[in-house]
């Protein structure tokens, strides 16, 4: 069953006098419950694709359905709620709020909905991601790998439809990168979620159930 469907998706940016075609008539589907890797060179449109799927920006043209919901029709406020409840983001760089503890960082999306965490699920995440004992630590007290694990925990906490990881291992060394990628894959399996992972790293892509290769804002048919 498809969780993401894109039809003739276009996203153009204007940079000065030039128009950058980040996504240029892209068609794709992503299957629910699978780990799908998005690969491609710099500027191929990987990050933009994740941003469009995550509702961070609207496409210039075309249709994007996530969990059956047409994002183009949503207002800014509806997109915020959509992101909060149905999407989990993991970014390359340190994306934790430095003034909040690890636990508080993880609970932000729930807090914005005035929702209480599922304590068992929360415990399970902490245990699974090896963050036990770090609940009250501040981000600057964590290593790079621990920070990314905390970011993964934050992405998982709302039990979203899909987790979007944009170069989530890009700032880590080879071994740590592999560990985090493995962890993400196992999380998806363990918590029955869908993962869309944008990466340059072919080794990480090999862990995926499916691979989408992008070039100049379009899917390369020969690889996918």
């Amino acid at each position: 069953m498809d969780i993401v469907t894109a039809r003739q998706l276009k996203k153009y940016y204007r940079e000065g006098k030039h128009v950058v075609k980040a996504l240029d008539g892209l068609d794709l589907t992503v299957q629910r419950g699978k780990f799908t890797a998005v690969i491609g060179n710099s500027g191929s449109g990987k990050t933009t694709l994740l941003h469009v799927i995550g509702g961070l920006c609207k496409p210039t043209e075309g249709e994007i359905l996530v969990g059956g919901m047409a994002l183009s029709a949503l207002t800014e406020e509806e997109l915020t709620v959509f992101r909060r409840r149905r999407i989990g983001f993991v970014f390359q760089e340190d994306s934790l709020v430095p003034e909040l503890t690890v636990l508080e960082n993880i609970l932000i999306p729930l807090a914005m909905d005035d929702a209480r965490p599922d304590e068992r699920f929360l415990k399970g995440i902490f245990s699974f991601l090896g963050l036990e004992g770090k609940e009250n630590a501040f981000p600057d007290m964590l290593s790079g790998g621990q920070k990314q694990r905390a970011a993964i925990a934050r992405a998982l906490i709302t039990k979203p439809d899909i987790i979007l990881a944009d170069e989530a291992t890009g700032s880590l060394d080879g071994k740590n990168a592999q560990n985090v990628a493995q962890l993400l894959k196992r999380s998806v399996d363990c918590f029955h979620q869908t993962l869309l992972f944008a990466t340059h790293n072919r080794e990480i892509a090999q862990l995926a159930d499916a691979v989408i290769c992008l070039r100049d804002g379009q899917v390369c048919p020969e690889i996918s």
């Binding site: 995550g54 992101r83 994306s95 914005m112 709302t158």
Partner: peptide
């Protein structure tokens, strides 16, 4: 970042 992880404009 706040907006990305689910904070609305009113937040």
């Amino acid at each position: 970042l706040y907006r990305t992880i689910g904070m609305g404009g009113r937040h």
